[in-house]
């Protein structure tokens, strides 16, 4: 069997990552790769350790063991487990959203998108000093950042609400805004923690279009945690399945869907029953071969 495409040019390689909280092993010796330009889905039952993996990738937790390597398109490599969380966003260019939305609710939609462009604006303002005395270069940079914000507002259909406080938006719009805010940092890898949670089917469909569009026009690689299997199957190129912090399956959506261990994990079948299912499948496979 040839190596899968994501092994050839990975944007993110997770190597033997373990995360312990006291006695609890939330992630256990996890290794997987996310391909450049791919939409990689991380799935698993509640408490499987998906958010913990995200927190390790984005530096909010330091993994107890293991390596997280991020490779940019230009070949530069960043070892994420050694970097401070804000550096991971600023220099390794990994952006994320949160399972429970974290917008700046008292700031307007536009301001949320401007805060996301903090670092380039900070440089343009000469670390504030030049901007304070009215340097024209900063004015231009600010105009550009507003243009960028407008571009994203257009994509998420929120242009007409740009001047409203983010906390006033309906839930679905807040989810989209959080994605746009993450995209305003111009990330190489965008990590989305359950972006479709709480969305109705129409919104969920729009979200799929948005994510596909982000990949196509921005070339950003996506890593997403998702419970909604229809979303996963529809848009992802590669699925990694976790259960109790252990990777139980890794492959294309079709492969994973057919994996008896995944079926068992999702249907809550006992371990010996898994063996039975596997045997049954083996028989089917044998028969097909003959």
């Amino acid at each position: 069997m040839p190596a899968p495409s994501w092994e050839k040019d990975p944007v993110l390689s997770v190597e033997h990552v373990t995360m312990r909280f006291g006695g609890l092993v939330a992630v256990n010796d996890l290794s997987f790769a996310a391909g450049r330009g791919d939409i990689t889905a991380l799935i698993g039952p509640n408490g499987a350790g998906k958010t913990t993996v995200f927190n390790c990738i984005t530096g909010f937790y330091k993994p107890t063991q293991g390596m997280l390597r991020l490779q940019h398109g230009d070949g530069s490599t960043h070892l994420l487990e050694r970097m401070a969380d804000f550096k991971i966003s600023a220099t390794a260019k990994v952006a994320r959203t949160f399972q429970n939305i974290r917008l700046f609710s008292g700031m307007t939609v536009l301001e949320n998108l401007l805060v996301a462009q903090h670092n380039p604006l900070m440089i343009a303002s000469g670390m504030t000093v030049l901007g304070l005395i009215g340097f024209p270069a900063y004015k231009k940079a600010e105009k550009r950042s507003i243009e960028k914000a407008k571009y994203w507002l257009d994509k998420i259909n929120l242009t007409d609400r740009a001047d409203d406080p983010a906390g006033d938006l309906p839930y679905g719009a807040q989810r989209r805004l959080e994605i746009a805010r993450a995209m305003c940092t111009s990330p190489e890898l965008l990590c989305l923690d359950e972006p479709a949670a709480g969305l109705n089917p129409r919104e969920s469909g729009e979200l799929n279009q948005l994510l596909l569009d982000i990949r196509k026009t921005e070339g950003t690689s996506l890593l997403l945690i998702e419970h909604d299997m229809s979303v996963v199957m529809e848009i992802s190129d590669h699925v990694v399945v976790l259960e109790y912090g252990i990777k139980i399956s890794d492959g294309t959506p079709a492969e994973v869907k057919a994996d008896p261990r995944v079926i068992a994990a999702y249907l809550g079948v006992d371990d010996d029953e898994v063996a039975e299912v596997e045997e049954a499948l083996d028989v089917v496979v044998e028969e097909a071969r003959q």
């Binding site: 984005t58 909010f60 969380d85 804000f86 550096k87 966003s89 600023a90 952006a95 994320r96 949160f98 974290r102 917008l103 700046f104 805060v115 996301a116 903090h118 670092n119 805010r181 993450a182 940092t185």
Partner: peptide, 9 residues
């Protein structure tokens, strides 16, 4: 937390 996720020191 959101600030740090956006690369703000």
């Amino acid at each position: 937390v959101a600030c740090r996720s956006l690369g703000i020191n």
